[in-house]
Write a protein that binds this DNA or RNA. Structure first.
Lengths: 109, 109
DNA sequence: TAATTATATCGTAATATTGCAATGAAACAA
DNA sequence: TTGTTTCATTGCAATATTACGATATAATTA
């Protein structure tokens, strides 16, 4: 199928998996790391920094933007991208809570 | 293509994206949450708990096992699964470091 | 031994993802 | 106005993912 049965899962499970999925490609991880390093940058910088074609970078930026993790300001002919702090911190809270589950009692049989 | 160009990214970026990808499906998130809740369980429990067919659950368990996040002990005709603490904590360290990047200077133009 | 139980694997259909060439759109420069 | 720059969108080919029926495997039970 290729289609996840989201309706049988909780909102929280679906939210976690949506955030995780966007981090599930190294190009998007690289874009975010570059944005953190430089505070902000334009699409052209990313095309040079990462070795992917411009439409591919643009597509990855779109997915990050759709989740609200980044935002872009048009500046003349270029677009300046940066992390959206609010959404990033919200996402971090959800993800860290998932990762922080207590492992101490967990063991096999 | 459907094929990520992993060779142009750092090991860290590829590792983060591999961990994230496995969390990128709500069924695997649900399996892990259930394992944390019960400390351990068998495949059949998960088939009842989550509304997916047995081969589908088995496939998701395989992906979690391949990354080392869970391990399974054969117990008669059933298999007891639990979180692999060591790998989980290693993964958590990598992911939290990625999520914890400093957002304070980041802003658009 | 034969049947049962629990899980894994195989095969396949439906859908999603990735990557890029070609093209479009919008701002700017000459 | 015409060209240039920068980015987004479209269309498509290659590959990956998801889900499950059918079947295999392995331990247990009758």
């Amino acid at each position: 199928m290729g289609l996840a049965k989201t309706e049988i899962f909780t909102d929280e499970q679906n939210e976690i998996s949506l955030f995780a999925k966007v981090f599930g490609h190294p190009a998007r991880v690289a874009i975010l790391q570059y944005l953190f390093k430089l505070d902000n940058c334009i699409c052209g910088d990313l095309v040079n920094e990462i070795g992917l074609a411009q439409p591919t970078i643009s597509q990855h930026l779109k997915e990050l933007k759709q989740l609200g993790l980044i935002k872009g300001n048009v500046e003349g002919t270029s677009v300046c991208y940066c992390i959206d702090k609010t959404t990033w911190l919200d996402m971090k809270q959800v993800m860290v809570q998932f990762l922080d589950q207590d492992v101490s009692n967990n063991d096999c049989c």
